[in-house]
């Protein structure tokens, strides 16, 4: 999808976060030499067409005590991956769920789901629930816990 330059600027200006002032959209508008109305209208349009998913106060799971962040990966039949992915995504503890390509023979997994637990047992319980849901469609699976966050920034586009 091609985005207008102004929309792109709005996204880039808001990726570090809206300022914590009474009129944050006005503050963004001033930086871009636009009106607050135009900024809000453009954000609303981008929400309608799916470029913006939601406007959120984004929690920092790690700082809130979710130390067991597991990338669970599953090898399931490509014919069923969409239906299974939808159901996994509906689980309340799954934050992201994606289909990705396999890299044979090193990497046989095509379904990814991120889980977040405060303890290892929490995370293991969540993984067991996913395994049960996927049932006999799973050929292989594993989990990769993060041992170190080396870098984490909001989405930015380096141009």
């Amino acid at each position: 999808m091609q985005l207008e330059a102004i929309d792109r600027q709005i996204i880039q200006t808001t990726q570090a976060g809206l300022p914590l002032v009474a009129e944050p959209y006005q503050a963004i508008a001033e930086q871009l030499d636009l009106s607050a109305e135009e900024v809000m209208q453009r954000i609303s349009n981008m929400q309608q067409n799916g470029v913006i998913r939601r406007i959120a106060a984004v929690p920092n799971h790690y700082k809130l005590g979710y130390r067991y962040n597991g990338m669970t990966v599953w090898d399931v039949d490509d014919k069923h991956v969409d239906a299974l992915g939808q159901r996994v995504a509906e689980l309340p503890f799954v934050s992201h769920c994606y289909q990705r390509p396999r890299y044979l023979p090193d990497w046989p997994y095509n379904l990814f789901a991120m889980v977040h637990g405060k303890t290892e047992q929490d995370a293991e319980r969540q993984i067991a629930i996913i395994a049960e849901l996927l049932g006999s469609d799973v050929r292989r699976n594993t989990v990769l816990y993060s041992t170190k966050i080396l870098k984490k920034t909001g989405l930015r586009i380096a141009g």
Binding site: R53, P59, L64
Partner: peptide, 19 residues
């Protein structure tokens, strides 16, 4: 919340690959 880093930011969340 922001100073204690319990929220990472407030703002629009972009769909992957949309830009």
């Amino acid at each position: 919340l922001s100073e204690r880093q319990l929220i990472s930011r407030i703002g629009p969340v972009i769909a992957p690959n949309s830009i």
